[in-house]
């Protein structure tokens, strides 16, 4: 699923990879790809993650991982970093999710009474990146669908999600809700529909698998 999501990143893009599953996408990007990775704490042109014995104490990404530069990297302050985000300079952001609504609503920052660490840069990424895709397990730890008709948790942003990559499928959020695009190997369309908490449009044609 992470390898499949990595194919979403095209040459020429400026991309922000959110904390959690999306950060792992970096390991699946081909070396010939011309892409600029942005991180909220003030860097464009993120290079490979470094082990602690080779780390620079002053060079981290927004998730706290020690990263490196590539030729052409730039550092900047938090004002500049979010000017990039809010003014639409991010072609793509990949975010984690607690819930995604069939209307493209995203909830990924707060579970009242259980998890409330604050939103960080999540609202601005979700609301302002030109394209927002989500990487998430299809169901939560209790096996309940994370893709729902409507989000029940506090929202991060409305109507922002264009595509969802899960361990079961690739699903687009269209004008009429969730549309199945691809399935994971060994997973049927019916399996995906059964694990999805909202109507799922399944095309009549054979679907690719990943």
């Amino acid at each position: 699923m992470i390898a499949r999501a990595a194919l979403e990143i095209e040459s020429g893009m400026t991309v922000n990879l959110g904390i959690g599953l999306p950060t792992k996408v970096i390991d699946h990007l081909p070396s010939h790809l011309e892409v600029c990775l942005h991180t909220e704490n003030g860097m464009s042109g993120i290079g490979p993650t470094l082990p602690s014995d080779r780390a620079d104490r002053n060079l981290i990404d927004a998730g706290g991982a020690y990263v490196s530069t590539v030729p052409g990297s730039a550092f900047f302050d938090s004002v500049t970093s979010f000017a990039m985000v809010r003014s639409g300079r991010l072609d793509l952001t990949m975010l984690g999710a607690f819930e995604v609504g069939a209307n493209g609503d995203l909830a990924n920052w707060k579970i009242p009474g259980k998890f409330s660490p604050g939103v960080g840069g999540g609202i601005e990424l979700a609301q302002k990146a030109r394209r927002v895709v989500v990487l998430t397990t299809h169901t939560d730890r209790a096996g309940k669908p994370k893709l729902k008709t409507e989000c029940s948790l506090p929202l991060t942003a409305r109507g922002c999600v264009a595509r969802i990559f899960t361990d079961m499928a690739v699903i687009d959020v269209g004008p009429e809700g969730f549309e199945l695009v691809e399935t994971a190997q060994g997973v049927s369309s019916a399996d995906v529909a059964a694990a999805t908490g909202a109507p799922l449009r399944i095309p009549n044609t054979a679907l690719p698998s990943f």
């Binding site: 991180t39 704490n41 003030g42 860097m43 620079d56 002053n58 060079l59 981290i60 990404d61 550092f75 900047f76 302050d77 938090s78 004002v79």
Partner: peptide, 12 residues
């Protein structure tokens, strides 16, 4: 002067 990602909120 600041260095790398230690700049962040300091200038503002």
């Amino acid at each position: 002067g600041y260095v790398a990602t230690a700049r962040n909120f300091n200038p503002v």
